[in-house]
Amino acid sequence: MPRLAHLLLPFLLACASALPAYAQTRADAGTPATVRFGDSKPVNWTGRAPDRYQIHGIDVARFQGEIDWRKARRAGVSFVFMKATEGGDLLDPLFKDHWRGAKRAGIPRGAYHFYYFCTPPEVQARWFIRNVPKNKGTLPPVLDMEWNPFSPTCAKVRPPGHEVRRQMKVFMDMVERRYGQRPIIYTTPQFYRDAGLDRLKNEEFWLRSTAKTPAQAYPQQRWSFWQYSGTGLIDGIGKEVDLNVFAGSPNNWSAWLKARQR
């Protein structure tokens, strides 16, 4: 983040609670829901904008620091995915704190693994399984698939699409056997194109697109979650955070949780 943004962040966070809320009435659920998220770099969307969706959540890692999860829930956080592992030997130092905190606040939570192209998928799956508890009521695991351009040792390793998809299957099959849930695939527009992820059938997607809607960035691809911002401002979180929406209505969300929580 540019230095100026760091200096302005406390001011922006203070202002976020004063911003007009994303206010939606859950007509099909019969209860009102208010989401109060700010954004330090808002986008003028064309197409269906994030505030047209009713179920909002976040994803976090060590970069967000300590979180007041009850405040975050009151601000409208309906779900959270949190970084657990990376490669075959890295554990997010705040994963355990985030895992416990979200549970205490009653926020549905799931864990994600950042894939590393210089470590076999079997090793990475075992590392994830070693570090992520098999707790009742958790969301499906997530496999974060994007290139590693900032890695000190693996920045230029980019296997062809068929090999990427093979490795993904190995990882996902192992993790599914452990948790009883098929992992969700998180990805970016470039990786999606480069690795030919449109060839994957019957998989569930979480798509990143911070300037275009998923329909524009991933034509024809079905998705459950859309990460639309990396510069969110939420009460209870002292740093910028990724913002996400769920694709369906509150009734759809309830049905999805029933089917996908374990």
Rank of each mutant, 00 (worst) to 15 (best):
M1D: 14
H6M: 04
L7S: 09
F11P: 01
L13N: 08
C15F: 09
A16L: 14
Q24V: 10
Q24S: 07
T25V: 03
T25S: 02
G30H: 06
T31S: 09
P32R: 14
W45Y: 05
T46H: 08
G47T: 01
A49L: 08
A49E: 07
R52D: 13
I58A: 05
V60D: 11
D68V: 11
W69H: 05
W69K: 01
G76Q: 06
V77M: 08
K83F: 04
A84T: 04
A84K: 04
L90G: 00
R100G: 13
G101P: 10
G101H: 12
K103D: 10
A105W: 09
G106M: 09
I107D: 13
Y112S: 07
F114D: 12
T119K: 14
P121T: 00
E122V: 00
R126T: 02
F128N: 12
I129M: 13
L139Y: 14
P140H: 12
E146W: 04
P149I: 06
F150L: 12
F150V: 06
S151T: 12
C154W: 01
V170F: 01
E176R: 08
R178V: 03
I184F: 06
Y186S: 08
T187K: 06
P189K: 04
Q190T: 12
F191K: 03
G196P: 04
L197F: 14
L197A: 08
L200D: 01
E203M: 07
E204M: 13
S209Y: 02
P214A: 02
A215Y: 10
A215N: 11
T231M: 02
G232H: 03
K239M: 11
P250H: 04
W253Y: 15
K258Q: 15
A259N: 10
Q261V: 10
